[in-house]
Design a protein around this nucleic acid. Structure first.
Lengths: 344, 344
DNA sequence: TCACATCTCCAAAGCGCTTTGGCTATCGAT
DNA sequence: ATCGATAGCCAAAGCGCTTTGGAGATGTGA
C-alpha cells in the first residue's frame, strides 16, 4: 500500500492525504480522521526512502565503531550506550545505523556515509588523543557528538563525557588516605583519550601526596579479564608489591581479584581495589550493596544524553556545540581497607 | 556532488555515467575510466536513498533487539554477534539498522520496518519458545534469519544455532564421569529458547546416569555476575551441597567462582565448574590455556554465518531455508576435577 | 552500394514521497 | 450585489537515482 493507492481509495489527492498524515493545518478535521483511519486499516506507513529523498532528511543516526579486525575488540560498553541512545531515537523517530569499520578505513567510512546521504548525524565513539575525525567531521559539515573528548583538539564540538580525571584523582586520594603508597593502575589502552585522563587523575593525586610515580605500577592494555589478571600478578610479585589497585573497568577488576586470590590474599583486607564501573546491565556491581568500591557513571545515561544533543542539533543546526560533563560517584564497597601493617 | 552535476561536467548523460559506475557492458572502457576517475576526484557516491527508491532494494539489514525497558538487559553477546555479521555486510555492501524495542512493541516494530521499506532482511535475536515473530515474518514475506531456534515452530525457516543440547549433555556427562552427583545448573532465563535446550541436555545426561533431578540444583535468571553468585551460594549451602556447577555464561561462572571462594573452597579442587563460553573478545577464557573448563562456540562466527545466509536469500529469494548447527567444543581447563572424597 | 549487426550513448519515465503554487467554494463585510 | 479573505483541496514539479526504449555511428558481409 502506497500513498497513491491510499489516496485513490479515499477519493482524495496525494497532497491532501500526505498533509493529513503529517499534521498540516490546511485539511479539515473530518477528512484528517478519515485518512488516519484508512492508513491504520491498511497498515500504511510512508516509504522512508521516498520521504527522505523528498525532504532531504534521512531520520537516521550513524554510529561508527572501530573493530572489524581480529586484533581490535568491540568495546563491551557499546551495548549499554546504544540502549540509552535508542531511548531518545525512538522518542524522536530516528533510526540507528551501525557501521563496524576497520581502523584504517574509518575516515573514508565517514565521508562515504555522508556522501551517500544515509545519515543526518553521527556519534563518534572512543576518540583518540587529538583525534583527526573531529576536524574531518567539522569539515564535512554534518552534526556530530563525541562520546568522550579529544584533548588538544582546538576546535569546539559537542561531547558527552565523564569527568574521569577527577574520578581517578578522587579514587587514588582515597587509597592514599587509607595509607596505601604502592597503588597499581590497571588502565585501558592509552591510545584512547579517556584512558589518558584517567592516568592523569591518578598521577596528579600521587604527586599531591608526594608519592613518586613508578612505571612498574602502571599498565595499559585492552580491557579484558585476563589482562587485569596478568597486570595484577606482576604487580603483586614486585620486590615491593602493590597493596592497592585502581582498575579501568569491572572486567579488569575481576581479573585483579582473581590474581589476589591466586596469591592467597584477600581483597579488601590484604589488598584494596577500586574499579571504574560503567553500570552495565549485565555486569552490576552487586545488587544491593556494592561489591567493589567503585567510581560509577552510567554509560547508558551517557548514550541517552549524546543522542539528545545530536537530535537537537539536527533539528536546529544553528545551535552552538553542547557539552555534558558527567560526574562519577564514588561508592564504598568491601574491596577497600586501610593498609595492612599500619593498623597494628 | 550528484549524478546530474557529474554527468554535466563530463559532458555525458546521466544514463552513461550511472552505467559506467555500475559496471554495465554498454559503455566503452575508455569512458568508464574517465567516469570513475571523475567520481573519485569529486568523492562522488550515489545517494543511497535515491538509489534504493529506484531499485526497490535498500541494502540494509534490520536487527531488532528487545531491551529498552529498565528491566530487560541488553544481551552482552550482541556486540560480538554484530561484529561477525558486519564482516559479511561490509563485504556485500549492506548497512546495519539497529532497533532496540520494548517487548510489547516488537511485532509492530517488524511490521513498521517492512512497511516503511527500510530493510531488505531481518535478523531475529533471542527467540523464545514457540516464538510468534516467526509466523509473523513469514506472513509479511521478508527474508529473515533467526539466531537460535524456536522449538515447536511448525514452519521451516532459516537459523543459525549452537547444538547446546548436545553441549550441555556432554558437559554434564563429564562431571558425572568425574564422580559428581550434586551438579548445579546455573542457567539463563528459561523464556529464551536456547536456555531450555541447555536444561534439556543437562537433564537427559542426569537421567542416563540414573541421577534424580533436584529442583534446588537448578536456577534460571538473567545472566549476570551477581545472579551467578547468588545461585551458587544457595546451592553450596544446601544440606547436601553442590559439588559441581554448569553455567550458561562466563559472567555467571565468574559469580560462581566468587561464591566458591567466599565459602573458603577452591575451584577445580573442591568444586568443579564448567561454563558455556561465547568466546567474547572482551571476556576471553584465558589467553593461552583455558581457565574454566568450557563448552565453547564463537558467537562472532554465528553472526557472520547468519549474515551470510541472509544476504544470499536476499540475492535469491527462491532459495530454501538454510540451517547451520554449530557444534561447541569442550575444552578442559583447571576448573574441573574428580569428586573430592572419592579419590581418598 | 546497401542492409544489417554491433557499439556507444541518450532522453525520458518512474520509484513514492513532499511541497509549491494554484483554484474553487463559502462566507462575512461593505 | 460585490469584493476580499479564508478554508479546503488539487495538479504538478522535484528529490537523485535506475532503466527502458531508442538513436546515431561504425563496422561487416553480400
Amino acid at each position: 500500500m502506497n500513498l497513491k493507492e491510499l489516496a485513490a481509495e479515499l477519493g482524495l489527492s496525494q497532497t491532501t492525504v500526505s498533509r493529513a498524515l503529517n499534521g498540516y493545518p490546511e485539511v479539515s478535521e473530518a477528512t484528517r480522521e478519515r485518512v488516519e483511519a484508512a492508513a491504520r486499516r491498511h497498515n500504511y506507513f510512508p516509504n522512508a526512502r521516498a520521504r527522505s529523498l523528498a525532504t532531504g532528511r534521512t531520520h537516521a543516526i550513524g554510529h561508527v565503531l572501530p573493530g572489524s579486525t581480529k586484533h581490535e575488540i568491540l568495546n563491551p560498553i557499546f551495548g549499554d550506550f546504544i540502549a540509552g541512545a535508542s531511548e531518545e531515537y525512538s522518542r524522536a523517530g530516528y533510526e540507528l545505523m551501525l557501521s563496524v569499520v576497520r581502523d584504517e578505513d574509518e575516515a573514508n567510512a565517514y565521508r562515504e556515509l555522508v556522501a551517500k546521504g544515509t545519515v543526518d548525524g553521527i556519534i563518534v565513539h572512543s576518540p583518540k588523543e587529538n583525534d583527526e575525525r573531529i576536524p574531518l567531521l567539522k569539515d564535512i559539515g554534518i552534526p556530530f557528538v563525541v562520546h568522550g573528548r579529544s584533548t588538544e583538539a582546538d576546535t569546539d564540538y559537542s561531547w558527552v563525557d565523564v569527568n574521569s580525571r577527577r574520578a581517578f584523582h578522587q579514587a587514588t586520594r582515597l587509597l592514599l588516605d587509607l595509607g596505601h603508597r604502592r597503588i597499581g593502575l590497571v588502565n585501558g589502552l592509552e591510545t584512547g583519550d579517556f584512558a589518558i585522563r584517567r592516568r592523569d587523575g591518578y598521577l596528579s593525586a600521587l604527586e599531591e601526596a608526594g608519592v613518586a610515580r613508578d612505571g612498574d605500577l602502571m599498565t595499559s592494555s585492552e580491557m579484558t579479564e585476563t589482562h587485569g589478571h596478568e597486570a595484577a600478578c606482576a604487580m603483586l610479585n614486585l620486590p615491593s608489591p602493590a597493596t592497592a589497585f585502581i582498575c579501568s573497568s569491572m572486567i579488569m577488576a575481576i581479573g585483579v581479584r582473581r590474581a589476589i586470590h591466586d596469591k592467597g590474599l584477600e581483597m579488601g583486607r590484604d589488598v584494596s581495589v577500586i574499579t571504574y564501573d560503567d553500570d552495565l546491565a549485565y555486569l552490576r556491581n552487586g545488587t544491593t550493596a556494592p561489591i567493589f568500591t567503585a567510581i560509577r557513571s552510567s554509560v547508558r545515561t551517557a548514550g541517552r544524553q549524546a543522542a539528545e544533543i545530536l537530535t537537537s542539533h539536527i533539528a536546529d543546526p544553528s545551535l552552538p556545540p553542547q557539552h555534558r560533563l558527567l560526574e562519577a560517584e564514588l561508592l564504598l564497597g568491601d574491596s577497600t581497607g586501610p593498609l595492612r601493617g599500619q593498623e597494628t
